[in-house]
Design a protein around this nucleic acid. Sequence first.
DNA 1: GTGGGGGACTCAGAAACGTACGG
DNA 2: GCCGTACGTTTCTGAGTCCCCCA
Length: 425
Amino acid sequence: EHPKMGKVKGVIAPENLSMNCALDACPPKCPLPGHAWQSVCHKEETTWLAFYRDTINGEFKYIFLSAGSSLKGQSDREKFEKARELGKVVGNIRKKITSGLRSSTSVTMQQNTALWFIDLLAIRAGNEKDTAEEADTVGCCSLRVEHITLGRDEEGPTIMFNFLGKDSIEYKNTLKLRPDDEDKALELEDNPQISFVRHGEEENFAQVFKNMERLVRKSDNGKAKKPTDDVFDELTTSTLNQYLKELMPGLTAKVFRTFNASFTLDQELYKLEDHPRKKEFMKTDTTQLKFYNDANYQVAILCNHSRAVSKTFDTQMEKMDGKKDEIVKELNAAKKSLKEKGADKEKIKKKITQLEERIHKHETQKEIKQKLAGVALGTSKLNYLDPRITVAWCKKFGDFALSKVFNKTLQTKFKWAIDEADENF
DNA sequence: GTGGGGGACTCAGAAACGTACGG
DNA sequence: GCCGTACGTTTCTGAGTCCCCCA
Protein backbone atom coordinates (compact mmCIF):
# COMPACT_ATOMS: atom_id res chain seq x y z
CA GLU A 1 0.00 0.00 0.00
CA HIS A 2 1.27 3.46 -0.91
CA PRO A 3 1.87 5.68 2.14
CA LYS A 4 0.27 8.70 0.39
CA MET A 5 -2.86 6.84 -0.74
CA GLY A 6 -6.07 8.85 -0.18
CA LYS A 7 -4.45 12.30 -0.03
CA VAL A 8 -6.23 15.02 -2.03
CA LYS A 9 -4.28 17.15 -4.48
CA GLY A 10 -4.55 20.94 -4.38
CA VAL A 11 -5.55 23.04 -7.41
CA ILE A 12 -2.60 24.44 -9.41
CA ALA A 13 -3.04 28.20 -10.01
CA PRO A 14 -0.96 30.38 -12.40
CA GLU A 15 0.84 31.63 -9.26
CA ASN A 16 2.24 28.10 -8.81
CA LEU A 17 3.64 27.91 -12.36
CA SER A 18 7.06 28.98 -13.53
CA MET A 19 7.40 29.52 -17.27
CA ASN A 20 10.52 28.88 -19.33
CA CYS A 21 11.09 30.65 -22.65
CA ALA A 22 13.92 32.08 -24.74
CA LEU A 23 15.36 35.42 -23.64
CA ASP A 24 14.24 37.11 -26.86
CA ALA A 25 10.79 35.48 -26.85
CA CYS A 26 7.61 37.07 -25.54
CA PRO A 27 6.48 35.10 -22.44
CA PRO A 28 2.97 33.60 -22.79
CA LYS A 29 0.19 35.74 -21.35
CA CYS A 30 -1.58 34.35 -18.28
CA PRO A 31 -5.09 33.42 -19.50
CA LEU A 32 -6.81 33.91 -16.11
CA PRO A 33 -7.74 37.56 -15.44
CA GLY A 34 -6.35 38.88 -12.15
CA HIS A 35 -3.66 36.18 -11.99
CA ALA A 36 0.00 36.02 -12.94
CA TRP A 37 2.72 33.38 -13.37
CA GLN A 38 4.95 32.77 -10.38
CA SER A 39 8.00 33.58 -12.51
CA VAL A 40 9.40 33.57 -16.02
CA CYS A 41 12.88 32.17 -16.60
CA HIS A 42 15.16 31.56 -19.60
CA LYS A 43 16.93 28.22 -19.14
CA GLU A 44 18.55 27.37 -22.44
CA GLU A 45 19.89 23.99 -21.35
CA THR A 46 16.53 22.49 -20.38
CA THR A 47 13.57 21.34 -22.46
CA TRP A 48 10.66 22.01 -20.10
CA LEU A 49 8.17 24.78 -20.86
CA ALA A 50 6.83 25.20 -17.33
CA PHE A 51 6.95 23.60 -13.90
CA TYR A 52 5.09 23.58 -10.60
CA ARG A 53 5.47 21.78 -7.28
CA ASP A 54 3.29 18.82 -6.44
CA THR A 55 1.00 19.75 -3.55
CA ILE A 56 1.36 16.38 -1.78
CA ASN A 57 5.09 15.71 -1.75
CA GLY A 58 6.55 18.99 -3.03
CA GLU A 59 8.19 17.28 -5.99
CA PHE A 60 8.75 19.01 -9.34
CA LYS A 61 6.15 18.57 -12.05
CA TYR A 62 7.12 19.60 -15.56
CA ILE A 63 5.25 20.51 -18.71
CA PHE A 64 7.22 19.08 -21.66
CA LEU A 65 6.79 19.12 -25.42
CA SER A 66 4.82 16.19 -26.86
CA ALA A 67 6.47 12.90 -27.85
CA GLY A 68 5.82 13.77 -31.50
CA SER A 69 7.96 16.92 -31.39
CA SER A 70 11.27 16.98 -33.26
CA LEU A 71 13.09 17.77 -30.01
CA LYS A 72 11.80 14.60 -28.34
CA GLY A 73 12.44 12.64 -31.52
CA GLN A 74 16.05 13.75 -31.46
CA SER A 75 16.63 12.52 -27.88
CA ASP A 76 14.76 9.30 -28.67
CA ARG A 77 17.16 8.72 -31.55
CA GLU A 78 20.14 9.40 -29.31
CA LYS A 79 18.86 6.82 -26.83
CA PHE A 80 18.70 4.12 -29.51
CA GLU A 81 22.06 5.14 -30.95
CA LYS A 82 23.58 4.65 -27.48
CA ALA A 83 22.03 1.19 -27.33
CA ARG A 84 23.48 0.36 -30.77
CA GLU A 85 26.86 1.55 -29.56
CA LEU A 86 26.57 -0.89 -26.68
CA GLY A 87 25.71 -3.61 -29.18
CA LYS A 88 29.07 -3.10 -30.90
CA VAL A 89 31.11 -3.58 -27.71
CA VAL A 90 28.82 -5.78 -25.63
CA GLY A 91 30.98 -8.85 -26.27
CA ASN A 92 33.99 -7.24 -24.61
CA ILE A 93 31.90 -5.78 -21.79
CA ARG A 94 30.42 -9.21 -21.05
CA LYS A 95 33.94 -10.64 -20.90
CA LYS A 96 34.87 -8.00 -18.30
CA ILE A 97 31.69 -8.67 -16.34
CA THR A 98 32.25 -12.42 -16.26
CA SER A 99 35.87 -12.08 -15.20
CA GLY A 100 34.74 -9.64 -12.49
CA LEU A 101 32.38 -12.29 -11.12
CA ARG A 102 35.46 -14.07 -9.78
CA SER A 103 37.07 -11.01 -8.23
CA SER A 104 38.44 -11.35 -4.70
CA THR A 105 37.44 -7.71 -4.06
CA SER A 106 33.94 -7.85 -2.65
CA VAL A 107 32.63 -4.65 -4.24
CA THR A 108 33.89 -5.68 -7.70
CA MET A 109 32.28 -9.09 -7.34
CA GLN A 110 28.98 -7.43 -6.30
CA GLN A 111 29.09 -4.94 -9.17
CA ASN A 112 29.65 -7.62 -11.78
CA THR A 113 27.13 -10.06 -10.32
CA ALA A 114 24.48 -7.31 -10.36
CA LEU A 115 25.41 -6.39 -13.93
CA TRP A 116 25.23 -10.01 -15.02
CA PHE A 117 21.56 -9.98 -13.91
CA ILE A 118 20.86 -6.55 -15.41
CA ASP A 119 22.22 -7.71 -18.76
CA LEU A 120 20.50 -11.11 -18.83
CA LEU A 121 17.17 -10.34 -17.17
CA ALA A 122 16.72 -6.64 -18.07
CA ILE A 123 16.14 -5.77 -14.41
CA ARG A 124 16.13 -2.03 -13.57
CA ALA A 125 19.02 -0.43 -11.67
CA GLY A 126 17.15 -0.03 -8.37
CA ASN A 127 17.67 3.33 -6.69
CA GLU A 128 17.35 3.70 -2.95
CA LYS A 129 13.89 4.79 -1.81
CA ASP A 130 12.32 6.36 1.23
CA THR A 131 9.61 3.84 2.12
CA ALA A 132 7.88 6.29 4.47
CA GLU A 133 7.12 8.50 1.43
CA GLU A 134 7.03 5.97 -1.40
CA ALA A 135 5.93 2.39 -2.05
CA ASP A 136 8.40 -0.34 -1.08
CA THR A 137 9.61 -1.42 -4.50
CA VAL A 138 13.08 -2.56 -5.56
CA GLY A 139 15.43 -3.03 -8.51
CA CYS A 140 18.72 -4.90 -8.86
CA CYS A 141 20.89 -2.80 -6.47
CA SER A 142 18.16 -2.61 -3.82
CA LEU A 143 17.24 -6.34 -3.86
CA ARG A 144 16.90 -7.80 -0.37
CA VAL A 145 17.66 -11.31 0.86
CA GLU A 146 13.90 -12.01 1.14
CA HIS A 147 13.51 -11.48 -2.64
CA ILE A 148 15.87 -14.32 -3.57
CA THR A 149 15.48 -18.09 -3.27
CA LEU A 150 18.41 -20.26 -4.21
CA GLY A 151 17.71 -23.86 -5.14
CA ARG A 152 18.55 -26.81 -7.35
CA ASP A 153 16.72 -28.88 -9.94
CA GLU A 154 17.60 -31.69 -12.37
CA GLU A 155 19.65 -29.34 -14.56
CA GLY A 156 21.58 -27.65 -11.75
CA PRO A 157 21.33 -24.53 -9.61
CA THR A 158 18.32 -22.19 -9.76
CA ILE A 159 17.90 -18.58 -8.65
CA MET A 160 14.34 -17.45 -8.02
CA PHE A 161 13.49 -13.73 -7.93
CA ASN A 162 10.28 -12.58 -6.31
CA PHE A 163 9.88 -8.85 -5.67
CA LEU A 164 7.79 -5.78 -6.45
CA GLY A 165 9.36 -3.62 -9.15
CA LYS A 166 8.45 -0.23 -10.57
CA ASP A 167 4.74 0.61 -10.15
CA SER A 168 4.54 -2.28 -7.66
CA ILE A 169 4.45 -4.76 -10.54
CA GLU A 170 5.32 -8.23 -9.35
CA TYR A 171 8.52 -9.72 -10.78
CA LYS A 172 8.60 -13.49 -10.48
CA ASN A 173 11.25 -15.33 -12.42
CA THR A 174 13.39 -18.41 -11.99
CA LEU A 175 16.76 -18.45 -13.68
CA LYS A 176 18.03 -21.90 -14.54
CA LEU A 177 20.02 -23.96 -17.03
CA ARG A 178 18.37 -25.00 -20.26
CA PRO A 179 17.50 -28.73 -20.17
CA ASP A 180 19.24 -31.01 -22.69
CA ASP A 181 15.90 -32.63 -23.49
CA GLU A 182 14.69 -30.30 -26.27
CA ASP A 183 10.98 -31.10 -25.73
CA LYS A 184 11.26 -30.18 -22.07
CA ALA A 185 13.21 -27.04 -22.96
CA LEU A 186 10.57 -25.92 -25.46
CA GLU A 187 7.82 -26.52 -22.93
CA LEU A 188 9.62 -24.44 -20.28
CA GLU A 189 10.41 -21.73 -22.84
CA ASP A 190 6.69 -20.94 -23.03
CA ASN A 191 6.60 -20.27 -19.30
CA PRO A 192 7.10 -16.51 -18.79
CA GLN A 193 8.28 -17.12 -15.22
CA ILE A 194 11.31 -19.15 -16.29
CA SER A 195 14.48 -17.79 -17.93
CA PHE A 196 17.37 -19.81 -19.24
CA VAL A 197 21.02 -18.98 -18.87
CA ARG A 198 22.53 -17.97 -22.23
CA HIS A 199 24.28 -20.70 -24.19
CA GLY A 200 27.97 -20.86 -23.19
CA GLU A 201 27.38 -19.07 -19.86
CA GLU A 202 26.91 -22.23 -17.79
CA GLU A 203 30.18 -21.86 -15.90
CA ASN A 204 29.55 -18.17 -15.25
CA PHE A 205 26.14 -19.04 -13.91
CA ALA A 206 27.75 -21.48 -11.49
CA GLN A 207 29.97 -18.62 -10.30
CA VAL A 208 26.99 -16.23 -10.02
CA PHE A 209 25.19 -18.86 -7.95
CA LYS A 210 28.22 -19.19 -5.68
CA ASN A 211 28.37 -15.39 -5.29
CA MET A 212 24.67 -15.26 -4.47
CA GLU A 213 25.04 -18.02 -1.87
CA ARG A 214 27.59 -15.81 -0.19
CA LEU A 215 25.62 -12.57 -0.62
CA VAL A 216 22.36 -13.84 0.85
CA ARG A 217 24.04 -15.45 3.84
CA LYS A 218 26.83 -13.19 4.96
CA SER A 219 27.78 -9.57 4.68
CA ASP A 220 31.43 -8.67 4.21
CA ASN A 221 31.99 -8.29 7.95
CA GLY A 222 31.00 -11.94 8.34
CA LYS A 223 27.66 -11.29 10.07
CA ALA A 224 24.67 -13.43 9.02
CA LYS A 225 22.16 -11.50 6.92
CA LYS A 226 18.51 -11.00 7.84
CA PRO A 227 15.76 -11.34 5.19
CA THR A 228 15.41 -7.54 5.14
CA ASP A 229 19.13 -6.95 4.48
CA ASP A 230 20.41 -5.82 1.08
CA VAL A 231 21.85 -8.54 -1.15
CA PHE A 232 24.27 -6.10 -2.77
CA ASP A 233 25.20 -4.27 0.42
CA GLU A 234 28.15 -2.44 -1.14
CA LEU A 235 26.35 -1.18 -4.24
CA THR A 236 24.46 1.94 -5.21
CA THR A 237 23.15 2.80 -8.66
CA SER A 238 25.56 5.71 -8.93
CA THR A 239 28.68 3.63 -8.17
CA LEU A 240 27.40 0.98 -10.58
CA ASN A 241 26.92 3.58 -13.31
CA GLN A 242 30.34 5.03 -12.58
CA TYR A 243 31.82 1.58 -13.21
CA LEU A 244 29.82 1.29 -16.45
CA LYS A 245 31.20 4.62 -17.68
CA GLU A 246 34.69 3.12 -17.43
CA LEU A 247 33.54 0.33 -19.76
CA MET A 248 31.91 2.62 -22.34
CA PRO A 249 31.32 6.39 -22.40
CA GLY A 250 27.72 7.24 -21.50
CA LEU A 251 26.87 3.66 -20.51
CA THR A 252 24.32 3.24 -17.70
CA ALA A 253 22.27 0.31 -16.40
CA LYS A 254 19.24 1.55 -18.32
CA VAL A 255 21.04 1.22 -21.67
CA PHE A 256 21.22 -2.58 -21.20
CA ARG A 257 17.44 -2.70 -21.00
CA THR A 258 17.02 -0.71 -24.23
CA PHE A 259 19.73 -2.71 -26.00
CA ASN A 260 18.46 -6.14 -24.95
CA ALA A 261 14.84 -5.25 -25.78
CA SER A 262 15.73 -4.03 -29.28
CA PHE A 263 18.17 -6.90 -29.83
CA THR A 264 15.48 -9.44 -28.86
CA LEU A 265 12.99 -7.90 -31.28
CA ASP A 266 15.55 -7.95 -34.07
CA GLN A 267 16.45 -11.59 -33.40
CA GLU A 268 12.83 -12.69 -33.23
CA LEU A 269 11.71 -10.78 -36.33
CA TYR A 270 14.54 -12.06 -38.51
CA LYS A 271 13.75 -15.66 -37.61
CA LEU A 272 11.15 -15.23 -40.36
CA GLU A 273 13.89 -15.25 -43.01
CA ASP A 274 14.68 -18.98 -42.70
CA HIS A 275 11.54 -20.05 -40.89
CA PRO A 276 10.15 -23.41 -42.07
CA ARG A 277 6.65 -21.89 -41.89
CA LYS A 278 7.63 -18.63 -43.62
CA LYS A 279 5.02 -19.04 -46.38
CA GLU A 280 2.30 -19.56 -43.82
CA PHE A 281 3.25 -16.40 -41.89
CA MET A 282 3.56 -14.32 -45.04
CA LYS A 283 0.17 -15.52 -46.34
CA THR A 284 -1.96 -12.63 -45.05
CA ASP A 285 -1.55 -9.35 -43.16
CA THR A 286 -3.14 -11.00 -40.12
CA THR A 287 -0.62 -13.84 -39.99
CA GLN A 288 2.31 -11.49 -40.56
CA LEU A 289 1.02 -9.18 -37.82
CA LYS A 290 0.74 -12.19 -35.52
CA PHE A 291 4.38 -12.99 -36.23
CA TYR A 292 5.35 -9.40 -35.34
CA ASN A 293 3.26 -9.44 -32.17
CA ASP A 294 4.84 -12.74 -31.10
CA ALA A 295 8.26 -11.08 -31.38
CA ASN A 296 6.97 -8.04 -29.44
CA TYR A 297 5.58 -10.46 -26.83
CA GLN A 298 9.04 -11.90 -26.16
CA VAL A 299 10.27 -8.37 -25.40
CA ALA A 300 7.32 -7.63 -23.11
CA ILE A 301 8.10 -10.81 -21.15
CA LEU A 302 11.78 -9.88 -20.91
CA CYS A 303 10.92 -6.40 -19.60
CA ASN A 304 8.11 -7.69 -17.35
CA HIS A 305 5.48 -5.38 -18.87
CA SER A 306 2.24 -6.60 -17.42
CA ARG A 307 -1.30 -5.29 -17.18
CA ALA A 308 -4.34 -6.10 -15.10
CA VAL A 309 -6.42 -8.91 -16.57
CA SER A 310 -9.78 -7.52 -17.75
CA LYS A 311 -12.62 -8.03 -15.27
CA THR A 312 -14.69 -9.60 -18.01
CA PHE A 313 -11.89 -11.88 -19.22
CA ASP A 314 -13.52 -15.09 -17.93
CA THR A 315 -16.88 -14.30 -19.49
CA GLN A 316 -15.14 -13.40 -22.75
CA MET A 317 -13.42 -16.78 -22.72
CA GLU A 318 -16.70 -18.57 -21.97
CA LYS A 319 -18.34 -16.75 -24.86
CA MET A 320 -15.56 -17.82 -27.20
CA ASP A 321 -15.94 -21.42 -26.02
CA GLY A 322 -19.68 -21.21 -26.63
CA LYS A 323 -19.13 -19.87 -30.12
CA LYS A 324 -16.67 -22.63 -30.90
CA ASP A 325 -19.18 -25.25 -29.71
CA GLU A 326 -21.71 -23.80 -32.13
CA ILE A 327 -19.29 -24.09 -35.07
CA VAL A 328 -18.35 -27.65 -34.03
CA LYS A 329 -22.03 -28.59 -33.91
CA GLU A 330 -22.50 -27.17 -37.40
CA LEU A 331 -19.45 -29.11 -38.57
CA ASN A 332 -20.75 -32.39 -37.13
CA ALA A 333 -24.10 -31.81 -38.78
CA ALA A 334 -22.39 -31.15 -42.12
CA LYS A 335 -20.33 -34.35 -41.77
CA LYS A 336 -23.48 -36.32 -40.99
CA SER A 337 -25.34 -34.89 -43.98
CA LEU A 338 -22.46 -35.96 -46.21
CA LYS A 339 -23.47 -39.58 -45.62
CA GLU A 340 -27.11 -38.96 -46.56
CA LYS A 341 -28.42 -40.20 -49.90
CA GLY A 342 -28.77 -37.59 -52.63
CA ALA A 343 -26.63 -35.02 -50.83
CA ASP A 344 -24.66 -32.44 -52.88
CA LYS A 345 -21.28 -33.85 -51.79
CA GLU A 346 -19.11 -31.15 -53.38
CA LYS A 347 -21.07 -28.36 -51.74
CA ILE A 348 -20.97 -30.05 -48.33
CA LYS A 349 -17.24 -30.79 -48.56
CA LYS A 350 -16.61 -27.11 -49.30
CA LYS A 351 -18.69 -26.16 -46.27
CA ILE A 352 -16.76 -28.61 -44.08
CA THR A 353 -13.46 -27.07 -45.14
CA GLN A 354 -14.78 -23.58 -44.41
CA LEU A 355 -16.01 -24.65 -40.97
CA GLU A 356 -12.71 -26.30 -40.13
CA GLU A 357 -10.87 -23.11 -41.11
CA ARG A 358 -13.22 -21.07 -38.92
CA ILE A 359 -12.54 -23.36 -35.96
CA HIS A 360 -8.80 -23.02 -36.53
CA LYS A 361 -9.04 -19.22 -36.73
CA HIS A 362 -11.20 -19.15 -33.61
CA GLU A 363 -8.75 -21.29 -31.68
CA THR A 364 -5.84 -19.06 -32.75
CA GLN A 365 -7.73 -15.95 -31.62
CA LYS A 366 -8.45 -17.52 -28.26
CA GLU A 367 -4.81 -18.53 -27.90
CA ILE A 368 -3.65 -14.95 -28.60
CA LYS A 369 -6.20 -13.53 -26.18
CA GLN A 370 -5.12 -15.89 -23.43
CA LYS A 371 -1.45 -15.22 -24.06
CA LEU A 372 -1.88 -11.43 -23.94
CA ALA A 373 -4.35 -11.30 -21.03
CA GLY A 374 -1.78 -10.10 -18.51
CA VAL A 375 0.90 -8.82 -20.89
CA ALA A 376 1.21 -5.27 -22.25
CA LEU A 377 2.91 -4.94 -25.67
CA GLY A 378 2.54 -1.16 -25.93
CA THR A 379 5.13 -0.11 -23.36
CA SER A 380 8.05 -1.78 -25.11
CA LYS A 381 6.92 -0.59 -28.53
CA LEU A 382 6.73 2.98 -27.26
CA ASN A 383 9.91 3.10 -25.19
CA TYR A 384 12.36 0.26 -25.80
CA LEU A 385 12.18 -0.97 -29.38
CA ASP A 386 14.29 0.90 -31.90
CA PRO A 387 11.59 1.84 -34.43
CA ARG A 388 14.08 1.50 -37.29
CA ILE A 389 14.11 -2.28 -36.77
CA THR A 390 10.37 -2.38 -37.32
CA VAL A 391 10.51 -0.02 -40.31
CA ALA A 392 13.24 -2.13 -41.97
CA TRP A 393 11.40 -5.38 -41.32
CA CYS A 394 8.18 -4.04 -42.82
CA LYS A 395 10.02 -2.95 -45.95
CA LYS A 396 12.00 -6.17 -46.26
CA PHE A 397 9.23 -8.70 -45.77
CA GLY A 398 6.52 -8.29 -48.38
CA ASP A 399 6.38 -4.50 -48.01
CA PHE A 400 4.19 -4.98 -44.96
CA ALA A 401 2.14 -1.85 -44.19
CA LEU A 402 3.75 0.02 -41.33
CA SER A 403 0.32 1.26 -40.24
CA LYS A 404 -0.42 -2.31 -39.10
CA VAL A 405 2.18 -2.03 -36.33
CA PHE A 406 2.49 1.73 -35.73
CA ASN A 407 -0.72 3.65 -35.13
CA LYS A 408 -1.02 7.34 -36.00
CA THR A 409 0.57 8.50 -32.74
CA LEU A 410 3.53 6.15 -33.14
CA GLN A 411 3.98 7.18 -36.78
CA THR A 412 4.26 10.80 -35.61
CA LYS A 413 6.59 9.92 -32.75
CA PHE A 414 8.81 7.80 -34.98
CA LYS A 415 8.81 10.04 -38.06
CA TRP A 416 12.60 10.37 -37.77
CA ALA A 417 12.98 6.58 -37.97
CA ILE A 418 10.56 6.16 -40.87
CA ASP A 419 12.54 8.74 -42.85
CA GLU A 420 15.90 7.23 -41.91
CA ALA A 421 15.64 3.43 -42.11
CA ASP A 422 15.64 1.41 -45.30
CA GLU A 423 15.23 -2.36 -45.58
CA ASN A 424 18.93 -2.92 -44.88
CA PHE A 425 18.97 -1.11 -41.53
C1' DG B 1 36.52 14.11 -2.16
C1' DT B 2 32.26 12.50 -1.47
C1' DG B 3 27.62 11.56 -0.45
C1' DG B 4 23.06 13.15 -0.54
C1' DG B 5 19.50 15.53 -2.46
C1' DG B 6 17.78 18.60 -6.09
C1' DG B 7 16.60 18.67 -10.78
C1' DA B 8 15.35 16.96 -15.35
C1' DC B 9 14.29 13.64 -17.92
C1' DT B 10 12.11 8.74 -19.47
C1' DC B 11 9.10 5.03 -18.52
C1' DA B 12 4.66 3.01 -16.60
C1' DG B 13 -0.15 1.17 -16.37
C1' DA B 14 -4.83 2.71 -15.66
C1' DA B 15 -8.57 5.49 -16.88
C1' DA B 16 -11.00 7.89 -20.18
C1' DC B 17 -12.42 8.23 -24.61
C1' DG B 18 -13.67 6.88 -29.37
C1' DT B 19 -15.20 3.66 -32.61
C1' DA B 20 -16.27 -0.64 -34.91
C1' DC B 21 -18.97 -4.54 -34.89
C1' DG B 22 -22.59 -7.78 -34.27
C1' DG B 23 -27.02 -9.15 -32.56
C1' DG C 1 -31.31 2.07 -36.20
C1' DC C 2 -30.21 0.99 -31.50
C1' DC C 3 -27.56 -0.87 -27.93
C1' DG C 4 -24.02 -3.43 -25.62
C1' DT C 5 -19.53 -5.06 -25.92
C1' DA C 6 -14.83 -5.22 -27.18
C1' DC C 7 -10.90 -3.17 -28.43
C1' DG C 8 -7.70 0.43 -29.97
C1' DT C 9 -6.06 5.15 -28.93
C1' DT C 10 -5.19 9.10 -26.11
C1' DT C 11 -4.65 11.25 -21.79
C1' DC C 12 -3.12 11.37 -17.22
C1' DT C 13 0.11 11.55 -13.81
C1' DG C 14 2.85 8.65 -10.78
C1' DA C 15 7.27 6.09 -10.57
C1' DG C 16 11.47 5.31 -12.02
C1' DT C 17 16.66 6.63 -13.69
C1' DC C 18 20.58 9.33 -13.61
C1' DC C 19 23.34 13.62 -13.66
C1' DC C 20 25.13 17.42 -11.22
C1' DC C 21 25.93 20.58 -7.64
C1' DC C 22 26.75 21.91 -3.07
C1' DA C 23 27.57 21.37 1.81
